[in-house]
């Protein structure tokens, strides 16, 4: 398992460096990295420090959040088809962002959009916890999440539907596709505290998730408080995925596919899968964010689109495999 950690960390580090040296500015990798470390006073240093570094950091942060919360949700629901979007946080954060774009709030100050998205995530968590009740099981959580996702999706469509301004509508559509282009350190500092708190909460679920291998009754009889576990899970997912959505838009499939891919390497233990999925998610988003810049460098291919293009076939493969196993 420590070997897996070394491999994953090495992959994340390599992709991080690769992300730093990928982009428009024509300069060799060595020259670029030197401009990052030493302020040479030329534009390359500005590009490296103000554009590429925050972009690479955000890719790693967003990926970690999605991978970690996906693994935690799959562990809690004991279902390999669960993903962070399931509890409605991404949808609600997207709705918050869409409202900010539509009302023009997003143009009024730089971080209005991510703040509004975070607000959406907070409202979603409040609703879920209120709907699912203090003693509800996994099923009530899923149902509450589906209801909130559907509502947020419908309201997002309503905003688009009634939008009198075609430019705002186009902005909304592009934002919803998810991207890490043109982000700054302001976005990093906005998202990082929420993600950090969310990660700590999700990491604290490890023991409870392991015990849940024996079912809810078995876990509770071993001294695990299911109410506390669920509170940690929902608020941790909301904080980390809400923050990720607020800075990067809706990026699907990472939280679904990464835990599934890494599960065999941690002996299927839901607690050990948490950190592995966090690292794996970081690697996947970094790789995808490099790919959008390499595949169609002049067309602004959106990260969320690419992720879905890669993720959907993987998901089909997962369904195919599950079907074979249960047959």
């Amino acid at each position: 398992m420590t070997r897996l950690a070394v491999i994953l960390i090495a992959v994340v580090a390599a992709l991080f460096v690769a992300s730093l040296v990928t982009g428009y500015a024509i300069a060799g990798p060595i020259e670029s990295l030197r401009a990052l470390l030493v302020d040479t006073g030329n534009p390359l240093s500005v590009v490296m420090r103000e554009i590429r570094l925050p972009r690479a950091i955000l890719a790693a942060l967003v990926g970690t959040s999605l991978g970690l919360s996906g693994a935690a949700l799959q562990g809690y629901l004991r279902n390999p088809l669960a993903e962070p979007g399931l509890i409605g946080v991404s949808g609600s954060a997207a709705l918050g962002a869409v409202l900010a774009i539509q009302t023009g709030l997003a143009a009024s100050f730089a971080l209005a959009l991510p703040f509004s998205a975070l607000g959406g995530a907070v409202v979603a968590v409040g609703l879920i916890l209120a709907l699912a009740g203090p003693r509800g099981g996994a099923i009530t959580l899923i149902l509450a999440g589906i209801a909130i996702s559907a509502l947020a999706g419908a309201l997002t469509s309503l905003v688009l539907n009634l939008s009198p301004n075609p430019f705002a509508a186009a902005d909304i559509v592009f934002w919803l596709m998810g991207s890490l282009a043109d982000r700054s350190f302001a976005h990093v500092w906005l998202a990082l505290p929420f993600m950090g708190v969310g990660w700590l909460m999700l990491a604290a679920t490890a023991r409870g998730l392991e015990a849940l291998t024996l079912g809810e009754d078995g876990a509770e009889a071993m001294g695990i408080s299911l109410a506390r576990l669920r509170l940690l899970l929902v608020t941790g997912t909301a904080a980390s995925v809400g923050a990720a959505t607020s800075v990067a838009g809706a990026i699907g499939f990472v939280g679904l596919v990464v835990p599934h891919l890494l599960r065999p390497f941690v002996g299927a233990r839901p607690g050990a899968l948490l950190w592995a999925s966090g690292l794996g998610g970081a690697a996947m988003v970094l790789a995808a964010d490099i790919a959008v810049r390499v595949v169609l460098p002049d067309r602004d291919l959106k990260l969320g689109v690419l992720m879905a293009l890669v993720g959907a076939p993987l998901f089909l493969h997962l369904i195919y495999k599950t079907r074979k196993e249960t047959a």
Partner: peptide, 27 residues
Amino acid sequence: QVAWMPQSREIAWPVTVETLIALGRIP
């Protein structure tokens, strides 16, 4: 004080027998 074995014999993930038995040490 008490170990409980529920009627539904739930094993959610394909963990090894040893790992599963080790879960009993959580308390």
